[in-house]
Simulated assay, not measured.
Amino acid sequence: MRLSAVQAITPRLKPGKILDALGAMQNSLTRTAQRIAAYILHDPASVTQFSIAELSSETQTGEATIIRFCRMLGYKGFQDFKMDLAIEVATRDSSNDALLDADVQDEDDMQVIGAKLQATINNVMSETLNLLSAEALEQVVVQLRQADKVCLFGVGTSGITAEDAKAKLMRIGLRVDAATNNHFMYMQAALMKPGDVAIGISHSGISAETVKALKLAREAGATTVALTHNMGSHITQCADVVLINGNRQGELQGDSIGTKIAQLFVLDLIYALLVKFDPKVAQSIKRKTANAVNSGE
């Protein structure tokens, strides 16, 4: 029985990464596995005290299903998983979680609401660093440095992120464009070639337009990169490299600030690593582009 489209994670998740990884893969799990993941995310401390029979009863799933769920995460079984989860629960900082999970109340003033938003930003960046693969990020940077052309694809708020990244990468000399209209996305993608890099941005990973554009770019021979929160989602199926961003957010934020900060954080990290490779050249090109813009004002 397959639990999900997410492949087994090996080696096993380290304490400190378990809950973030479960949150990122949750939408790619089957309904049965989602119940297990949702229960663990909702009350991880209780799960560390449960026997497998108790978790089976609470989630209305079979014990064998729970064992398969744990093995999907790279563990030998439930006891193995529970031990690392207990370490994570014991060492995590719960102060920000309390702020994060709290909705805005009538009595909240600007300082309190500001603190809740700050907690969201801090948490989503920490979660993103937790979920990002250093090897994948390095691979993307190498590909971008060698690319003849870079295309960024995204719709809605992800399209705004794509435009922001375009401006930043152009400043340091990359031949880059961003497409946020589906027709332009498809045309750009179809005209790409080997040596080009296409980056598809979709927080959910199921944006039909962005998935199709990335698929077309891959078929044209370009190296494809997916930036998403959803492990095992449609967009990851047509990506050579997958970058996972965080999404820890409460009712306060909806899909706005947490999603936006997570995406911008990853792209700014890529930008910083590109500059780090050759800071003198990057500074020279950035000065040239800045002078060009300023001379027209």
Rank of each mutant, 00 (worst) to 15 (best):
D20A: 15
A5E: 13
A33T: 04
A33G: 14
T236D: 06
S4N: 11
T161H: 11
L73Q: 05
T259K: 13
A198W: 02
E58A: 15
V112D: 09
Q60N: 14
K288Y: 03
L19T: 04
H234W: 01
G16K: 02
V155M: 12
E209A: 04
R2V: 11
G114Q: 05
H42V: 00
G156F: 04
R2P: 13
G77H: 05
T61I: 04
I67V: 15
G173W: 03
I160A: 15
T259H: 08
I67S: 11
A45P: 06
Q60S: 14
E138C: 01
V176R: 11
E63D: 11
K168F: 00
I66D: 08
A38C: 01
G154Y: 01
I235N: 11
V124Q: 11
T91G: 09
E297Y: 07
I261E: 07
S204L: 04
D109Q: 08
E127G: 01
V275A: 13
E297L: 09
K116M: 04
A272T: 06
S233W: 02
D164M: 07
D108Y: 00
I36H: 13
T91N: 15
M187Q: 12
S256Y: 06
L29D: 08
L252E: 02
L264H: 04
V275R: 15
Y186V: 06
